[in-house]
Amino acid sequence: MAALFFIVFLDLVGFGMIIPVLPFYAEHLGIAPSLIIFFFGLYSVGQLVGAPLWGALSDRLGRRPVLLATLAANAAANVVLAFAGNAWQLALSRLVSGLAAGNVSIAYAYVADVTTDAERPKALGMLGAAFGLGFILGPALGGALGGGEAGSANMTRVALAAAVMSLLAFLATFARLQESHHEEHRAAAGAEAKGLRWRLLARIELRHLLAVTLIVVGAVSMLQGTFSLWAAEGLGVSPRHLGFVFAFIGVIAVTVQGVLMGRLSSRYAPEALTRTGILLVVVALVFIPLAPNVWVSLAPMALYGVGSALFSPSVSTLITRTAGATERGAVLGLFQGTASLGRVVGPMAASGITALAGLRVPFWVAAAVSLGGAVMVHRPGGTPGAAAGDAPSDVAATPP
């Protein structure tokens, strides 16, 4: 497990390094500022396609080979980005990186393979903490490597460093990560592959959980897409202070997922933690746009950090319970693909609502929608996988 967390951390550092530099480099290439969000969106579109694809493929071929292939593809995409000289090359690099980043479904499936139901929430929380740490460190490194002048941001240096991170993750996977998906499970997954996605979507509990994921991730993405603009225009916050706010949220999320999640999951059911996480996000969304200054906004933003940190591993645990041992990759691929769809739809909805009603209203719309998601979370009456004829196995593979 430690090897997987290290690999995820390296991969997320590389992803985060690109974020602070990409807007400046896109402008350097002559791309209009209004179109820059399109290039960020391409990444999410790639994840939307890649997550279900790689998850299902890893059920048939094994987690390790598919993870190796996607890490290599991400490294190649970052090399293309390093030498991109026009908008088309930039778009290609972001789309391929997004497709490769769909490998997050493989990481989740790996954790599900090597843990029991009792161990899984804590392990998924630790995986989330690895994501969070990488996302905190990545933008800081990218900003440092990109340079201090907006007009001369060095994307070549940043993108090549990100490619190195992916290559290091590739080498760590090759050298240290053992296959978690047993050969008999891979053979069974291959025999059941035809029509699997539709059979999975026929499971009522899985459909409910995917709907909750779409609603909550979409709402959170509305916040992420609106907060920076609202804080800059409404509160006069500088980019540096915005960076501090997001780092503050990241530290809270890492603390909750890496330190507290194990203790909480031993006392409370994942349904309760999922609902609690959503309700904390709802409260945060209501009060953030009422803050008179950035310091007051830290209180509801802290609630948002705690809520989102509780939601992700808890709903992931519920999702894994709907999957049999031969289909975890496919189920978690659908989960991650649905989350990516939320990250595409949320900012688009926020943009339209802002144009019609101003910068505060998207927060309140997102709160109302998230509240509906909380209502949809309930304790299942039975194991959906078993009801479908594919009883999940509690027998975990031996961890590496």
Rank of each mutant, 00 (worst) to 15 (best):
P270M: 05
E271W: 02
Y268Q: 13
M261V: 15
V283Q: 06
L280D: 00
V282E: 01
A291F: 05
A284P: 00
T274V: 05
I278T: 01
F287G: 03
I288K: 00
P270D: 11
E271L: 12
M261Y: 06
R263K: 15
V281I: 15
L280A: 06
S265L: 11
V259P: 04
V282P: 02
V281N: 04
S266N: 14
V259C: 13
I278E: 08
L273D: 01
L290C: 12
E271Q: 12
Y268N: 12
S266M: 15
V281H: 02
P270H: 02
V286F: 09
Y268E: 12
L273C: 09
V286N: 11
N293I: 07
V286W: 04
R263I: 10
A291Q: 03
R263Q: 15
T276V: 13
E271F: 09
A269I: 04
T274P: 08
R275Q: 13
F287M: 07
I288P: 00
P270A: 09
M261G: 04
R267M: 09
A291H: 11
A272T: 14
I278S: 04
N293V: 03
S265G: 12
L290R: 10
L264I: 12
V259E: 07
V281F: 05
E271D: 13
V281Y: 01
G277R: 01
A284C: 03
A284W: 01
L260E: 06
N293C: 06
N293A: 05
L279E: 07
I288N: 01
R267P: 07
R275A: 05
A272H: 14
L279G: 03
E271S: 13
Y268H: 14
R267K: 14
T276R: 14
R267E: 02
R275K: 13
A291V: 07
L264P: 04
R275I: 06
L264W: 11
L285Y: 04
T276I: 11
R267S: 11
I288Q: 02
A269E: 03
L290G: 13
F287H: 05
